[in-house]
């Protein structure tokens, strides 16, 4: 389970974004040091990401997997989990990744697995982020009692050990993909809510929000039109972290046999690999591909997340090691 650290890197990065107070002075700014006109944050983010090599590599990996998932029925028609008599074959020209002990083609299982894994990961990611946004915005906007209550709930959920809670919930609920998604959202939203709340709070205290409140704008409008657009990069980072969480946690749950064992997914592939003793019989090709796929997708998302941090927080950017002494003369 890779991602209970939730979006902590981005949380730390958020904390770094101390306002680099632009010196405001009545006197005209000297020509050499005029501040650039403030860019719109979202344009800056997109532009920054497009020119960031980490983001591009991450996006490329992700696109490949999405394409494979979409093309799975074309590439490997038929039910990939159908049992055949070609059991336990090593990788060969015919079966690029070999076959399982039940004679299923590992390549087909892996590529079909991308469908469920990406679907669950993305659904859980978007849903948890959405809940996080609602909670964070409500906390920040209404403040006082509502904030206290919501923060309490968030913190309790953050503190309850995630995987055991997942296991317990999954054990009591009827098995199925819906259960998996629901359970992952229940355990995953709190991390994003905490990060988003603190960001929303800092924006809530800005003058333009106060102005909107005074001018009598509706609460919903202020929250979603005034505050939310200014948190674009944090929302993005949180979303990525939540998707990583979703994919990893689903795999963990399924590996424990608590998912919907009838679907083909990376976690289930690994569950069956464990169940059929692929390890002990030396059939490494059965359990390597799915794990590598999970890792690649998570890594791609982490790369993009890291790039978001870099773009929004120049201090983290890589610097050329030039010592100041040498630079003189």
């Amino acid at each position: 389970m890779t991602t209970y650290i939730d979006p902590s890197p981005s949380a730390a990065a958020a904390a770094l974004e101390s306002p680099t107070a632009a010196p405001a002075s009545g006197a005209p700014a000297p020509g050499s040091a005029a501040a650039p006109a403030p860019r719109k944050p979202r344009q800056g983010l997109v532009h920054g990401l497009l020119s960031n090599s980490k983001a591009m590599v991450g996006a490329a990996i992700l696109l490949v997997f999405i394409a494979l998932a979409l093309l799975a029925p074309v590439l490997f028609p038929g039910d990939p989990s159908r049992i055949t008599d070609m059991a336990g074959l090593e990788p060969s020209a015919e079966h690029w990744l070999g076959t399982t002990a039940k004679g299923q083609d590992v390549m087909a299982l892996t590529i079909h697995g991308a469908r469920s894994s990406l679907l669950v990961g993305l659904t859980v990611g978007f849903a948890s982020t959405f809940v996080g946004i609602l909670v964070g915005l409500a906390s920040a906007y209404f403040g006082k009692f509502i904030d206290e209550a919501l923060s309490l709930v968030t913190n309790v959920f953050l503190l309850l050990p995630g995987l055991p809670l997942l296991v317990i919930l999954a054990a009591f609920l009827p098995p199925g993909l819906g259960t998996v998604i629901l359970v992952l959202i229940v355990t995953g939203w709190a991390g994003s809510a905490r990060v988003l709340r603190s960001q929303a709070l800092s924006i809530r205290s800005k003058d333009f929000v106060a102005a909107a409140v005074v001018s009598g704008e509706r609460a919903g409008r202020i929250m979603f039109r005034e505050i939310l657009p200014n948190m674009a990069s944090i929302v993005m980072g949180t979303l990525l972290a939540c998707v990583i969480y979703g994919i990893g946690a689903q795999a963990g749950l399924e590996f424990l046999g608590l998912g919907d064992v009838s679907t083909v997914s990376w976690g289930n592939n690994l569950f069956w690999a464990g169940n059929e003793g692929a390890l002990m019989t030396g059939s490494w090709w059965v359990f390597v591909p799915s794990g590598v796929c999970i890792a690649l997708v998570a890594f791609a998302l982490a790369l993009i997340n890291y790039a978001v941090d870099e773009v929004t927080n120049p201090r983290l950017r890589k610097i050329k090691p030039v010592s100041e002494g040498k630079a003189a003369k």
Partner: peptide
Amino acid sequence: RRGGAIDSALPPLLVFIGSFPYFWLAMG
């Protein structure tokens, strides 16, 4: 040591390793 050996080599490597599921690395 910003930009030094530890700073440039380790984080991407560890993030990559951290991307693998716990149980999968354990199996491996």
